[in-house]
C-alpha cells in the first residue's frame, strides 16, 4: 500500500469517526459537516464530498481510496464529547497535533465516558424540578416535595434507559411514577397542589436537545435530519404526556 493511500485512509477514518461521535452525542448536522470538511481540508485533501444524516455518514475525498460509510447506531446526549471533538479539531487546524494523534484521541474518546458523578446528576434533577416549579407556578411551599418527586422520576428514567434501553418506554414509566408520587404526596399532606408538583417534576425529562437541533437542522436546510429529530422530540413528549394522562385517569 502506498503511503499516499494510507494517508487518505487515515483522513477518512478520522473525519468519519469525528462525525459519528458528534452525531451520536447530539450535535446538529451542519456542525458535523463543517467539522468533517475542515478536518479533510486541514489534512491536505483537495476536495471532499459529504452526505450526513442522523443515521449514517457517507464521505469521499479526492484521493486514492473510495468513499466510505459510517453507520450511526446509538444516540445519547453527551455534549461534552462534542466539545472535545471541537477542541481537537481546532488543535489540529493550528498544527498542535498530528493526524495520527487526532485519530488516536478520537478512538480513545469513543470508548471512554466521563459523566458527572451519579449523585451530582441526581442533585441536578432536583435542581431542575424544584426551582422551575417555583418559577412557573410561584408555589414556594411545594418546593421540597417537587425536588424529591423530580429526582425519583429522573432516577426511574435513568435506570430504565440504562438497563432496558427502550427509550420512549423509560420516559413513559418515569412520567407515570411522577404522577403517582405527586398524587400520593398530596394525599399524605406533604404537598398542596398535584398540578404544580407534576409540572416541576417532569422538567428534567424535557427533550431539549432534539427540539433545538430539529429547529436548527431544518433552518440549515437538512430536510431529512431535521424532521427526523422533530419526530423524536414529539414522541418523547407524547410518551411523557401519556404517562401523566394515564395516572390522571385514576385521580
Amino acid at each position: 500500500m502506498s503511503s499516499q493511500k494510507k494517508r487518505d485512509q487515515l483522513i477518512l477514518h478520522t473525519a468519519l469517526t469525528a462525525g459519528r461521535i458528534m452525531i451520536e452525542n447530539g450535535s446538529e448536522v451542519e456542525r458535523v459537516e463543517d467539522t468533517m470538511e475542515r478536518i479533510a481540508h486541514n489534512a491536505g485533501a483537495k476536495t471532499s464530498q459529504l452526505f450526513v444524516m442522523i443515521t449514517g455518514i457517507l464521505m469521499a475525498i479526492n484521493g486514492e481510496v473510495g468513499a466510505q460509510i459510517e453507520p450511526v447506531k446509538r444516540r445519547t446526549f453527551d455534549l461534552e464529547k462534542i466539545s472535545v471533538v471541537n477542541d481537537l479539531s481546532r488543535q489540529f487546524a493550528a498544527h498542535k497535533i498530528t493526524l495520527q494523534q487526532f485519530a488516536n484521541q478520537l478512538d480513545h474518546l469513543d470508548k471512554s465516558t466521563k459523566y458527572f458523578p451519579f449523585w451530582l446528576q441526581l442533585l441536578a434533577a432536583a435542581m431542575v424540578s424544584g426551582p422551575l416549579e417555583v418559577v412557573f407556578r410561584h408555589n414556594l411551599p411545594d418546593f421540597w416535595i417537587t425536588c424529591v418527586v423530580g429526582t425519583v422520576g429522573w432516577l426511574v428514567f435513568y435506570l430504565l434507559s440504562k438497563f432496558i434501553q427502550i427509550r420512549f418506554l423509560s420516559e413513559f414509566a418515569a412520567a407515570a411514577t411522577i404522577g403517582v408520587l405527586a398524587i400520593w404526596s398530596v394525599h399524605l399532606g406533604l404537598g398542596n397542589s398535584v398540578d404544580d408538583i407534576i409540572i416541576g417534576s417532569v422538567m428534567p425529562l424535557v427533550p431539549g436537545v432534539p427540539i433545538t437541533n430539529s429547529v436548527r437542522d431544518i433552518l440549515a436546510g437538512n430536510l431529512v435530519s431535521g424532521p427526523a429529530r422533530g419526530v423524536e422530540a414529539l414522541v418523547s413528549a407524547a410518551a411523557i404526556g401519556f404517562g401523566i394522562a394515564m395516572v390522571l385517569q385514576f385521580l
Partner: peptide, 17 residues
Amino acid sequence: AGNYVATIGFGILLNIP
C-alpha cells in the same frame, strides 16, 4: 436564582463541560 440553578441543572444532565 431559580432559572440560574435550573439551567445549570439541565446542563449537568446533558453533561456539558
